[in-house]
Write a protein that binds this DNA or RNA. Structure first.
Length: 835
RNA sequence: GCGAGAGUGGCGGAAUUGGUAGACGCGCGGGACUUAGGAUCCCGUGCCGCAAGGCGUGUGGGUUCGAGUCCCACCUUUCGCACCA
């Protein structure tokens, strides 16, 4: 915690008599616990409202302002809903497994099992201090066996449905650290910790078949009340694209090897295999002059001719050695010819088959038909290797022979050099050519998704062991549900080694177990699961915390789920939210949930920045919430965070700004203290009060916290204008409006005004629409579109009367020269006189 | 490159269906109370100008009685995805 001390002025700011935030806040923290204010009756609570926030990773650094910003925003929303008469369930827990904790533990030389509990204690202290309405009786800690028992159970449900399977997948491997790395840990092809160049390894991994759910995950998005940016991100990630799968017949490599002069005709019968490609542009098939397979494509061995086998093997080895990130970033085209040819089903011509790393095994079929005339990447490749480029689409002003000007033409147009399809538009051509090729058994229309299966294996220590046992006789056997949890053993040597498998694989005493089916010697799966699995179902657990016999109780789940409102960061727009939706759908399909979308409403909050940059230790601009809360109180800090800017966009943290919010709370305190209990409300003040109740009541549910606070400040200025003495009736509702933002002081003031129960047991004040308007208004007068002044007139003034009033006003009248050409009256707003 | 968003005072940010641009707060200036003020309270504060007035929402056009808001072109910038065929 260096360089994070904000430049406070020495000495505490002076507070109005009696207002000591730390004393007030301590008192109410205790009362809330004593009175059980935040523990919810899940069985009988009326009008259930599940307010969810994204649970934090309990780091050793402690709570980040970003966390507090998100939690406060959620808490305000939840407290507001409570004042609306809902029974609000606001749980919070800890997402404490994963590579972050593990790496940190390795760095400081402590064991995560010792580190995490102390981090959690510190988090809990900070969270309590912030005044959140959290029901701590129902918290979760993903690293606790009572929780991950059910995470393992979730895995088994997927396994049962055939949605969990094992296959070899590519991972990043650091040969120096001897460990698997996540893509984010690879910086420019090197390991982020030691700088060694990272390689690719193929390891057997467990996957979840989320790709089966791609169409549903996509179409359901239309039914969700979510932030538009989040929906968009999911759409892009799922990446639906329509096109065709086309089959290219391969010429027999043995027959044709080395005889490039052979005349190939469509009549030539060959016994070779077929290559399937995916394309979104089947209309351009007449321009497909070669095929490209991913280096990892299973057909490469069969296709490679003896003459080419040396260079191909070398190229494949190089591609395999390269890490995944660099391969996808490096755009220079490389590749090798396999020596084989295929037949273009449209032209009947012989085209060469290449391999190149710009074709990815994980997308489509791992093979493409290259149309260099109309695809930029293929154009680059064809240029490098001098392959033929044919025009098959002509845009405006182009013809069949228009040369390419150093680039592919990817625009719209009509087909040319395409036999019977010449003159057909691109759009029509896609459908017609697909149908034509389908009639020749050479392909069919398909929809492809970018989303690929979710790899959940981690060759690491700090996670829930995957509940699988391998038996020589019975094969892969799931751990029976009644034998869960598979407890993660406390081992001192949890550092990964060069074996490429989890540290647990070094512990024979742990992984040697009898087969649950036959009793013979067997071994446990030694990989642990991805942290995203822990968080993909935690919201199902909260209401059922304490139940050791089920993951989630059907009755309580039916009452409380799906989540009413989820508020969280858009950094989880894709993975966490998508995985949660997937797991929910799977459990729904298994008949365990009666809904298939877990989060009815989701809102993404913005990011807090400071000095124009994201807060980070390396930039030295991190704010320590403890110091601010100590200095200003949690109420002021909460309100200030919300006042920085629009909640959904984030804000710029400036040290000086909090004083304005604190002053507002001080004035609120003084106003209650000085209020005259007997006086009746001043009509003008009351009008403003009702306008404020309306405004705040509209702004809070739309998360416009900054403008809600501004409105309350504005009201305070009216209330105390010229040091007037306030009437109690004028300030009492304001205390209720402030309550969601600054709950401690609101409780204290509510009590000071003689209420025996919590302000949160009161109901949100109502406003009287009749009080909002007065009989006269200030009408803005423009002359020729320029504002010249304003006149006070009756609310429903006629145009003529308004014009007369404007002329009568000397400051305005002098601009009205001659007879007006046109007069526009916007009732209640303005008058524009055109001269 | 693709997708989504954002450009408004010294600063963070407000602005209903197109209808007083700059709410609210910070900062700054003046005053009151004070031994004192970095506390509190009051008043002021977009820019130019003594004033009348003029000019102002990234740039250039357009629509309109009237544009921060709508349309066209462009510039800058943030975030996400990125050789996705």
């Amino acid at each position: 915690m260096t360089a994070s001390v904000p430049p406070f002025h020495p000495g505490s700011p002076e507070e109005p008599l009696g207002y000591d935030p730390s004393a007030v806040e301590a008192r109410w923290r205790q009362r809330w616990v004593d009175r059980g204010t935040h523990s919810v009756d899940l069985t009988n609570g009326a009008r259930p409202f599940y307010a969810l926030m994204m649970f934090p990773y309990p780091s050793a650094e402690g709570l980040h302002v970003g966390n507090l910003f998100a939690f406060t925003g959620c808490d305000i929303y939840a407290r507001f809903q409570r004042l609306q008469g809902h029974t609000v369930f606001e749980p919070l827990g800890y997402d404490a497994f994963g590579i972050h904790s593990e790496n940190f533990a390795l760095k400081v030389g402590k064991h995560p099992m010792e580190l995490i509990p102390s981090n959690i204690r510190n988090f809990r202290r900070q969270l309590d201090r912030a005044g959140l309405m959290v029901d701590w009786g129902r918290s979760v800690d993903t690293t606790d066996a009572s929780y991950y028992k059910w995470t393992q159970w979730v895995f088994l449900q997927l396994y049962k449905q055939g949605l969990a399977y094992k296959k070899a997948g590519a991972v990043n491997w650091c040969p120096s650290c001897k460990t698997v790395l996540a893509n984010e840990q690879v910086i420019a092809g090197a390991c982020e910790r030691c700088g060694t160049m990272v390689e690719q390894r193929f390891l057997e991994q467990w996957f979840f078949k989320i790709s089966d759910y791609a169409p549903r995950l996509l179409t359901n998005l239309d039914t969700l009340d979510w932030s538009a940016t989040t929906i968009q991100a999911q759409r892009n990630w799922i990446g639906r694209s329509e096109g065709a799968k086309l089959r290219f017949r391969v010429l027999d490599p043995l027959t044709d090897a080395g005889s490039s002069a052979v005349a190939v005709t469509t009549e030539m019968r060959t016994a070779g295999p077929e290559i399937e490609v995916f394309t979104t542009r089947p209309d351009t098939i007449f321009g497909a002059t070669y095929l490209v397979l991913a280096p990892e494509h299973p057909l490469v061995d069969t296709l490679t001719t003896p003459m080419q086998s040396g260079v191909v093997a070398e190229y494949r080895a190089r591609a395999a050695k390269q890490d995944l990130v660099t391969r996808k970033t490096n755009k220079e085209k490389t590749g090798e010819f396999t020596g084989s040819y295929a037949v273009n089903p449209a032209t009947g011509e012989m085209i060469p088959i290449w391999i190149a790393d710009y074709v990815l095994m994980e997308y489509g079929t791992g093979a493409i038909m290259a149309v260099p005339g109309h695809d930029e990447r293929d154009f680059e490749f064809a240029t490098v290797f001098e392959l033929p480029i044919i025009r098959v689409v002509a845009g405006e002003g182009q013809g069949a022979r228009t040369p390419f000007d150093g680039a592919a033409y990817t625009g719209d147009g009509v087909l040319v050099n395409s036999g019977a399809f010449d003159g057909v538009s691109v759009g029509e051509g896609i459908a017609k050519i697909t149908a034509w090729l389908a009639s020749k058994q050479a392909g069919e229309a398909v929809t492809n998704y970018r989303l690929h299966d979710w790899c959940i294996s981690r060759q690491r220590y700090w996670g829930p062991p995957i509940p699988i046992i391998y038996c020589d006789a019975c094969g892969t056997v799931p751990v029976p549900e009644d034998q869960l949890p598979v407890v993660l053993p406390n081992i001192p040597d949890f550092r990964p080694d060069d074996s490429g498998v989890s540290p647990l694989a070094r512990h024979e005493e742990w992984y040697r177990v009898p087969c649950p089916q036959c009793g013979q010697k067997a071994r446990r799966e030694t990989d642990v699961s991805d942290t995203f699995l822990d968080s993909a179902w935690y919201f199902l657990r909260y209401p059922s915390v304490g139940r050791d016999d089920v993951a989630f109780d059907p009755a309580v789940t039916k009452k409380w789920l799906p989540v009413t409102t989820y508020i969280g960061g858009n950094e989880h727009a894709v993975l966490h939210l998508l995985y949660s939706r997937f797991i929910t759908m799977v459990l729904h399909d298994a008949g365990m949930l009666d809904f298939e979308e877990p989060f009815t409403r989701f809102r993404a909050h913005g990011l807090i920045i400071r000095d124009g940059a994201k807060m980070s230790k390396s930039k030295g601009n991190v704010v320590n919430p403890d110091e601010y809360i100590e200095q200003w109180g949690a109420d002021a800090f909460r309100t200030y965070l919300m006042f920085l800017g629009p909640f959904e966009e984030g804000g710029d943290f400036r040290d000086g700004g909090i004083s304005g919010v604190k002053r507002f709370l001080d004035r609120l305190w003084a106003t209650v203290r000085d209020a005259d209990p007997a006086a009746s409300a001043d009509p003008e003040v009351q009008r403003k009060l009702h306008a404020t109740i309306k405004k705040v009541g509209e702004d809070v549910p739309s998360l416009s916290y900054n403008t809600a606070i501004a409105a309350m400040m504005e009201y305070m200025n009216v209330l105390r204008k010229g040091e007037r003495q306030p009437a109690r009736a004028e300030v009492e509702p304001l205390v209720q409006l402030v309550a969601p933002f600054a709950p401690h002081i609101a409780e204290e003031l509510w009590e000071m005004m003689g209420h025996g129960t919590s302000v949160f047991a009161s109901r949100w004040p109502a406003y009287d629409p009749a009080l909002l308007e007065s009989d006269t208004i200030e009408l803005v007068v423009q002359v020729g579109g320029k504002t010249r002044g304003k006149v006070r007139v009756a609310k429903d003034v006629s145009q003529d009367a308004a014009l007369a009033a404007a002329k009568a006003d000397s400051a305005i009248g002098k601009f009205i020269t001659g007879e007006p050409k046109k007069v526009i009256l916007v009732p209640g707003r303005l008058l524009n006189v055109v001269v």
